[in-house]
Nucleic acid binder design. Structure first.
Length: 435
RNA sequence: CGGGGUGUAGCUCAGUAUGGUUAGAGUACCUGGUUUGGGACCAGGGGGCCGAAGGUUCGAGUCCUUUCACCCCGACCA
């Protein structure tokens, strides 16, 4: 892509309402644009990042044999009445009437829709287990949306649902999905913990959250310094039966824990940190299949309710989480798997013919290799283009500038902020090595 | 849903206590020129229903009433 033609409206000014790094930089670097409270439009750079995350999810879902479907976003309220959740969800569930005065809702999560899709179609144990998922816009009319993509009302989520004939088989699937989720977050280049969590309003028994470690996270989690154990703070407190007056939001109480708590699973010490919940997996059991009368016939010809699991992952929230974990004072630092463009070719002085020629040549060559490459061909000065490149966060920027007189260019590494001098003859090879 | 705050140019904001030329600055944008290794400089230019609706007044960005939107703290939260 040519920067001169790219729709990437970057700004020097910080949006007045942005607090979090991800919100500030995604806005300033031209990834997202707020439309209303909790509603954002994605511009080209954001779309590219989202697509990359989605591709990794599809990839790992295929590995565990989950199949992609797509449920309609607008859902008839009947299903929500049938499951009994229409009242439980309250105002967070956005309702409206169509022209025939029929009540519909915008899906905040899709247990009902998925069970409805499967019931009366999968009617034999022979066709189980089954794991179906989608990546789709969700809508929750949050009381208080905030923090940019972190807590919007409309957001993109991967939601998956599995159907089983036994709790043992559900356990197996649950573990497989936990592994898959870990792989996804690892591939995205994020530091995370899987923590024990509360099942919440969805219901069910086992529940784990994937927490991306970040100071700006909204969840307090206790993690062991020795083993993999981690727990959402509320869960940890319940287990340990600490004093009932404990207030998880109180700083003094949190400090109290920090001092003297041992891991319940090993001899390690627990410490407290903050996390961004990017994934949540549940063992649902038969809650929804019972409510919606979704049954199959077992080996003995007996009617049984599906035993279900559900697996969510916040795609748009992951975009923000990457930046929360990877940024500096100058802007975004995308990881290799999430970068909208891997390479930015910066022509320092567009009027310099030699610089221009080399830049164009390299650009076409990389394009030919399907490298995601941007060429900054704007008539701007060096400093302006560098600031812009740092704000957007390209992993690598090839600086074609005055060093060209010595037959060299530089590769600027956004993460380390180091510049490496490379001869013009080796630049192509060097870049291919970095990919 | 409680408490607080803000709405004026694409963006960041002055101006409102005490009503009074044609509503401002910076930045961004357009033209021309200079400049070209860390968000340059000079000159010229386009851009506003002062959130909306009512009212008070000779006169309202400014005062009054109503309303809408957005943000922050809290509670809530797959």
């Amino acid at each position: 892509m040519r920067r001169s033609k790219a729709f990437i409206p970057t700004t020097k000014e910080v949006p007045s309402d942005a607090v979090l790094a991800s919100h500030i930089f995604l806005s300033r670097a031209g990834f997202i644009s707020q439309v209303a409270s909790g509603l954002y439009s994605y511009m080209p750079l954001a779309k590219k990042v989202i697509r990359k995350i989605e591709n990794i999810i599809h990839d790992e879902m295929a590995q565990v044999g989950a199949q992609e479907v797509e449920l309609s976003f607008v859902a008839p309220s009947d299903l929500w009445i049938e499951s009994g959740r229409i009242d439980k969800f309250g105002k967070e569930l956005l309702r409206f009437y169509d022209r025939k005065e029929k009540l519909f809702v915008l899906g905040p999560t899709h247990e009902e829709m998925m069970v409805d899709l499967v019931r009366n179609r999968v009617v034999s144990y022979k066709n189980l287990p089954l794991n179906l998922y989608q990546i789709k816009t969700k809508f929750r009319d949050e009381v208080r949306p905030r923090y940019g993509l972190m807590r919007g009302r409309e957001f993109i989520m991967k939601d998956g649902y599995s159907f089983h004939t036994s709790t043992e088989d559900l356990d197996r699937e649950f573990d497989a999905l936990e592994v898959a989720y870990k792989k996804i977050i690892t591939r995205l280049g994020l530091d995370f913990r899987v923590v024990e969590a509360d099942s919440g309003a969805i219901g069910g028994s086992g529940s784990k959250e994937i927490m991306v470690i970040a100071d700006s996270g909204e969840d307090n989690i206790a993690v062991c310094d020795t083993c993999e154990y981690g727990a959402n703070i509320e869960v940890f407190l319940n287990m340990d039966e600490l004093d009932e007056d404990f207030d998880a939001n109180s700083i003094t109480d949190i400090k109290t824990i920090k001092g003297d708590d041992n891991c319940p699973h090993c001899a390690g010490k627990l410490s407290l940190t903050k996390g961004i919940e990017v994934g949540h997996i549940f063992k649902l059991g038969t809650t929804y299949s019972d409510a919606l009368k979704a049954k199959y016939l077992d080996e003995n010809g007996q009617s049984q309710s599906f035993i279900m699991g559900t697996y969510g992952m916040g795609v748009s929230r992951l975009v923000a989480a990457v930046i929360e974990q990877h940024h500096d004072e100058n802007g975004c630092i995308w990881t290799k798997e999430t970068a909208p463009y891997m390479v930015n070719i910066m022509i320092s002085n567009i009027k310099d013919e030699a610089q221009n020629t080399l830049g164009e040549e390299l650009y076409l060559k990389l394009l030919g290799e399907n490298i995601e490459v941007m060429i900054d061909d704007r008539k701007e000065r060096f400093g302006f283009k560098m600031k812009d490149a740092e704000l957007i966060g390209f992993p690598y920027t090839v600086i074609i500038g005055k060093e060209l007189a010595n037959g060299t260019v530089e590769i600027y590494d956004r993460k380390t902020t180091l510049k490496t001098t490379v001869s013009t003859g080796e630049i192509y090879k060097k870049i291919m090595e970095l990919m």
